[in-house]
Design a protein around this nucleic acid. Structure first.
Ligand SMILES: [Mn+2]
Ligand SMILES: [Mn+2]
Ligand SMILES: [Zn+2]
Ligand SMILES: [Zn+2]
Lengths: 127, 127
DNA sequence: CAGGTAAGTGAGAATCTTTCTCACTTCGCG
DNA sequence: CGCGAAGTGAGAAAGATTCTCACTTACCTG
């Protein structure tokens, strides 16, 4: 089989990953870009997207999205789901995953590699 | 308490809803816009978005999103989840919802009004 | 049914997010 | 070192969604 395209360990990616690790929550590409720019010279926004794509391919980060808001990225060390407030947009990880590994009796021939589960509603302050 | 902002039954919204009902799957705002324009005079794209927002508020339609792709809208008469192919983007509804009504032992004080569950992986042709 | 009014509409601009292009740089491997 | 592929930066481009504002229309009242 073909070589899995190899990926380099550049300074930009190190800085980007450090920001993601330091964050206690999921960040948008723009937020990551801004934070990286605060600890040193700014990097291109496209570079952030490319790095996130590479990290996601490598299984290092996970992405999640809701409504029209931007996609958020965070460490994917262990799978988890989220609870999102429809009013203030607050985002909380769930301790345990309540979804089954794969849907029962679903699309035949489909190989499930993962899932994304988001509960939405209203947080304590917004309800 | 204040009157819940009332919503009007305009010709545009009727046409939009008809398109959504006729579709066998979830559509993007742009797709809906195009289809509506095919059975009569075109309507504004912003009107489509406003109608979808109103329908969603009213619980008539549900939205779902994956990755950077556009949000898709479909009838929410009955809740259902999806299976999405990471390669070709194909989108399939699931017959039964495998997720619990609410996460166990999750965010305290959070009122869950719904959820979105997407299984992803590779469809028969793409694996 | 006529009139008043607030919700809705259309066209286009504006915002945002994400992707792409291309010349230039750097990492990783001899 | 020295090469070649992967990565980068700046900006353009592509899309998606929202906003503005003058104009229209559904719907309630009398
Ligand atoms: Mn998370
Ligand atoms: Mn899960
Ligand atoms: Zn909230
Ligand atoms: Zn596929």
């Amino acid at each position: 089989m073909a070589d899995p395209k190899r990926t380099r360990n550049t300074q930009q990616r190190q800085r980007i990953l450090r920001v993601i690790q330091a964050a206690g929550c999921h960040l948008t590409a723009r937020e990551i870009h801004r934070r990286v720019g605060q600890n040193g010279r700014a990097i291109g926004l496209a570079t952030v997207y490319r790095a996130l794509e590479a990290f996601a391919r490598a299984g290092l980060v996970e992405s999640a999205s809701l409504g029209g808001r931007a996609i958020r990225y965070g460490l994917a060390a262990e799978h988890h789901d989220h609870v999102v407030c429809l009013e203030c947009g607050k985002w909380q990880p769930l301790g345990r995953c309540p979804a089954p590994r794969a849907p029962r009796g679903a699309a035949p021939g489909f190989r499930v590699t993962g899932h994304r589960l988001e509960f939405f509603g209203y947080c304590e302050e917004c309800r």
